[in-house]
Design a binder for these strands. Structure first.
Ligand SMILES: [Mn+2]
Ligand SMILES: [Mn+2]
Ligand SMILES: [Zn+2]
Ligand SMILES: [Zn+2]
Lengths: 144, 144
DNA sequence: TAAAAGATGATAACGATTCTCATTTGACAC
DNA sequence: GTGTCAAATGAGAATCGTTATCATCTTTTA
């Protein structure tokens, strides 16, 4: 945890941003909820528990900054809110998601799985892939 | 075109919905812009050209209805608006997209490409796939 | 024809996100 | 340490896509 924050701090400094107390509190919330898919409002509520003076706008600004630095990925599961997902450190690509249409749960797939598909796309469509989003919608193992 | 509308009409009737003039005008716009990825506002503007009395709410309602019937798919490329994409008739799954981070263009991939990946997901995660969303972000062939 | 149900259009309401601006903080020079 | 100044913050207003409301119109049913 502390090492992870230290590395994010360095990453911020390398682009001449500071790790302010508000930003650190926000990053801690994200780290503590690594498996969740929190909205900005969710993050705001959780940060407030530890840092009650923080403003919603600051949370939005911090999430935007972290997205820019690729510390988090901003995703949209079609429910009208953006969600923020911590990227695995050193992961080449964003992980995939399994959204259950019964219970609404969101599970993660960390394996790449797309290597072959990406090769085909790069070759056949002459498209240089920088990132991807893959979400499966269906029935999760708990709801079957 | 006419046959396609006829089939959509039947699909509506089978669920006891009617193909009103407003709905038909909206469907026509979608058919005429099959390769685009129009927002509700875009559709509204285009329908107005042929049917000036139509209201924005009706367009939203029609798009919602068509989404429910799986005539269109509602997608979100992360720019703050939902876009509506006509489904290929008889296509088992939604097609994929190539979003260019240089010029903003969105190209389509109609090929499935995910058959193997889906088999792995169904088996290893015990997840029953009903649909998917796959988008690649990168540099398109025109911008290279 | 009369009544009921379904659709529509205008517009108000809503909610997530962004913007504005006065104030505060933190890094750096002296 | 003190002063300076750009960067960051918090409160609340503004924006904007979308949804809800409701009176009116249209179509179906009895
Ligand atoms: Mn995730
Ligand atoms: Mn498409
Ligand atoms: Zn489930
Ligand atoms: Zn391009």
């Amino acid at each position: 945890m502390e090492q992870r924050i230290e590395r994010i701090k360095k990453q911020l400094h390398s682009q001449s941003y500071k790790l302010t107390p508000q930003r650190e509190a926000t990053v801690r919330v994200l780290l503590e909820h690594e498996d969740d898919h929190l909205s900005a409002e969710d993050v705001y509520m959780l940060v407030k528990e530890k840092y009650p003076e923080i403003g919603l706008a600051t949370v939005y600004r911090t999430l935007e900054l972290l997205t820019e630095l690729k510390v988090v990925d901003k995703i949209n599961f079609g429910d009208g809110v953006s969600r923020y997902d911590l990227r695995q450190e050193g992961a080449a690509h964003f992980h995939h998601h399994l959204v259950c249409i019964e219970c609404g749960s969101v599970d993660e797939i960390q394996e790449d799985l797309l290597e072959d598909v990406e090769k085909v796309v790069e070759d056949r469509w002459n498209f240089e892939i920088k990132d991807h989003r893959l979400t499966f919608h269906g029935i999760c193992h708990r709801c079957k």
